[in-house]
């Protein structure tokens, strides 16, 4: 197990450098000259241009510039926006929203997806199974914004159970509906994945052996069916956390949440290079981190993987 964890951690190093270098190199290769643009139609005097280039280390070779960029990442110095606001502050505004939203969505989709999936998988072809299958198909087929507006209208406006938009204090109650909407599609996928796995594992020989030992049904289900079924589900949930962090633009828009998605969207349109690069870097790091967690969970669930 130690070897496995050690190897996974070591693997992070090349992934981190590879991913950050790619982001950096892509921005470097972008056409256009922001410094020239600063001078407008008149153009900049060569001395000023040189001074700016020196300030941003643009006179250095690519690799040195990359190292400066890395230094920035490690010292939380992500540069300034056009308006002169440090990018770190922009991040500090946006990330808590998205993080809370994504975590709530993950908890919602995992708990209910797995729970419903287990019940459906154990009684495949039953009434419950058929009902949740149709429901999940709906969720997958209908675009997120339709689900969002629908819930907003029914639960928020007509029934008045939950607030229509979030409040600034990020209260659980106001975040609940956006989290459900954000997690809806993944909930459907987790449900279907769990259902298939459970149905397949339920007929495994070792499950029969466990029953023959005299174990009660709940113990057989939890220990011998569920644990074996969770491995592919965990993979999906891990990949999904990364996706939810960066891809919540629509949901954030519907519920008026000032999160990562919306901020990125704006930054891209306004050509805020520093913001885009910094946010992308953080999201890449989140991805790397979650896949590490997934790998560790794998090993905890399946002893065979520890020895690969």
């Amino acid at each position: 197990m130690k070897r496995y964890v050690g190897r996974r951690l070591l693997q992070l190093i090349p992934v981190f450098f590879g991913a950050t270098f790619l982001i950096f190199a892509m921005v470097y290769a972008l056409p256009g000259d922001p410094i020239a643009a600063l001078g407008g139609d008149k153009g900049l005097p060569p001395a000023v241009r040189a001074a700016i280039e020196r300030e941003y280390h643009l006179d250095q070779p690519l690799l040195i510039q990359y190292l400066y960029y890395l230094k920035g990442i490690f010292t939380f110095d992500f540069g300034m926006t056009f308006s002169g606001r440090p990018v770190v502050e922009v991040m500090a505004d946006a990330f808590p929203w998205t993080l809370k939203l994504a975590l709530m969505a993950i908890v919602f989709e995992s708990v209910f997806g797995i729970l419903f999936g287990v019940f459906a998988g154990l009684r495949r072809g039953g009434v419950f199974d058929s009902t949740v299958l149709v429901l999940s198909l709906f969720l997958i087929a209908i675009p997120v914004f339709v689900i969002g507006f629908l819930l907003q209208f029914i639960i928020g406006v007509k029934l008045g159970w939950l607030p229509v938009t979030v409040d600034q204090s990020m209260s659980f109650k106001s975040m609940l509906m956006p989290a459900i909407v954000l997690g809806a599609v993944s909930f459907a996928y987790i449900l279907r994945l769990t259902r298939t796995e459970v149905a397949e594992n339920a007929t495994a020989d070792y499950v029969r052996t466990a029953t023959a030992k005299g174990l009660s049904r709940p113990k057989v289900v939890v220990r011998h069916i569920l644990r074996n079924s969770l491995i592919p589900v965990i993979t999906f949930i891990g990949a999904d956390l990364g996706a939810l962090m960066g891809g919540a633009i629509v949901t954030e828009g519907i519920f008026n949440i000032p999160g990562v998605g919306g901020t990125m969207y704006k930054a891209i349109f306004q050509g805020e290079a520093a913001t885009v690069v910094s946010f992308t870097t953080i999201l890449v790091l989140v991805y790397i981190f979650t896949s590490l967690i997934v790998d560790l969970l794998y090993a905890a669930l399946d002893p065979r993987i520890r020895y690969e």
Partner: peptide, 11 residues
């Protein structure tokens, strides 16, 4: 049971 390969839970 019959098949020792499949009758023990691998995890």
């Amino acid at each position: 049971p019959q098949d020792p390969m499949s009758n023990l839970n691998p995890v």
